[in-house]
């Protein structure tokens, strides 16, 4: 356990620092009250708004662990939201609509998985196809409009709360727990890491690399569709043009901040989740700060740069060197000649 904590130190420190900065620009940052049976406050916003990217990051972590990438998650969000909204408006129950949206997400993931695992297309290209086409599919489903809905059960997925905790947060944590169970309580995590590090050696050891890849992409599609349902439920409408737009990049960033290498292999689900929270804490902080909107992206880029430097090998070595200078071991005296 302490080993895990130690590995998580940079991310937790970063989250702490960003929250601290938020508190400095906005002293009421940690104030939380209950509003209409729901926890209410800026800190709650960080979790609530961070939930969709956290969900995307969960799936993205698995795909990146296989040495892949999934650019289509934003588009899958749009498709899932459009599917759920259209179905409830056609008179289907919310459960049916949600199940159908999740199924569509799973199908999208499987499509990506088939392209990558069976047809051996490079992941970045394979998922680019759905990234581009997916938004078009979502637009066709919504016929280019924002499909608003009033179904209370579907809206509950975005704005509801259980015991005061907003639904998106509950769903994201639930997805994290289920994924952790699926990957860490079985051997799937190990097999995923193995094929990500060395697919050929793993295949020679009998690992069914194709199946592992399919599962990773399918699961990524599934978590993306859940994020899409939440995003639609939150605004009570499916916005095919904007739902999940560019969020694939935030998800990838969250994974990287979480310390999972883009070259695959060892992956850290919980830290990717923390990475998503760091990104959202930063966004929320910028909004609270009252900076001009023109500065948003620059501030964000700067903070991310600092974050990544904090955990990069180069700065680690620099820190080591500083520590070494302070406690330099005494070298053997020069000129000790042995003849």
């Amino acid at each position: 356990m302490t080993r895990h904590l130690k590995a998580a130190a940079p991310q937790l420190a970063a989250l702490f620092l960003v929250l601290l900065a938020n508190w400095i620009v906005f002293p009421e940052f940690f104030h939380i009250r209950v509003q209409d049976g729901r926890l209410y406050g800026s800190l709650v916003d960080v979790f609530n708004r961070g939930a969709p990217v956290a969900l995307l990051a969960i799936g993205m972590t698995l795909v990146i662990a296989t040495r892949g990438i999934d650019l289509s998650v934003g588009a899958v969000m749009a498709i899932a939201g459009a599917t759920a909204a259209t179905l409830v408006n056609d008179g289907h129950g919310a459960m049916t609509a949600i199940a159908a949206a999740l199924a569509v997400g799973l199908l999208c993931g499987l499509w990506n998985g088939i392209l990558v695992a069976l047809l051996d297309i490079q992941p970045i290209i394979a998922t680019l196809i759905l990234m581009v086409a997916g938004r078009g599919i979502a637009q066709l489903i919504t016929e280019g409009q924002i499909v608003t809905f009033v179904d209370p059960a579907l809206i509950f997925m975005g704005s509801g709360a259980i015991a005061g905790i907003p639904m998106p947060v509950i769903l994201a944590f639930l997805a994290l727990c289920v994924t952790l169970f699926l990957y860490r309580r079985t051997a799937l995590g190990l097999l995923t890491e193995a094929i990500g590090i060395n697919r050929r050696a793993s295949a020679y050891a009998g690992v069914n690399a194709r199946a592992v890849l399919l599962v990773a992409y399918a699961w990524c599609g599934l978590t993306a569709s859940l994020a899409g349902i939440i995003a639609a439920a939150d605004i009570k409408g499916a916005d095919a043009n904007n739902a999940g737009l560019w969020l694939e990049l935030d998800a990838i960033l969250a994974v990287v901040i979480g310390g999972t290498s883009l070259f695959g292999g060892r992956f850290r689900l919980v830290l990717s989740f923390v990475g998503a929270l760091i990104i959202q804490a930063m966004n929320t902080g910028i909004l609270l700060s009252g900076f001009k909107p023109e500065f948003n992206l620059i501030v964000k880029a700067f903070v991310i740069l600092v974050l990544l430097l904090m955990q990069s090998g180069a700065s680690g070595a620099l820190l080591d060197r500083l520590a070494l200078i302070r406690s330099r071991p005494r070298l053997a005296p020069e000129g000790k000649e042995v003849s």
Binding site: F26, E28, G41, S42, D45, R49, I146, A231, D234, I235, G237, D239, N242, A243, N283, T284, L287, L288
Partner: peptide, 13 residues
């Protein structure tokens, strides 16, 4: 809509 909601949330706070 999504960003409008998020930004308004922070304005309110």
């Amino acid at each position: 809509r999504a960003k409008g909601k998020e930004v308004m949330e922070s304005f309110l706070k």
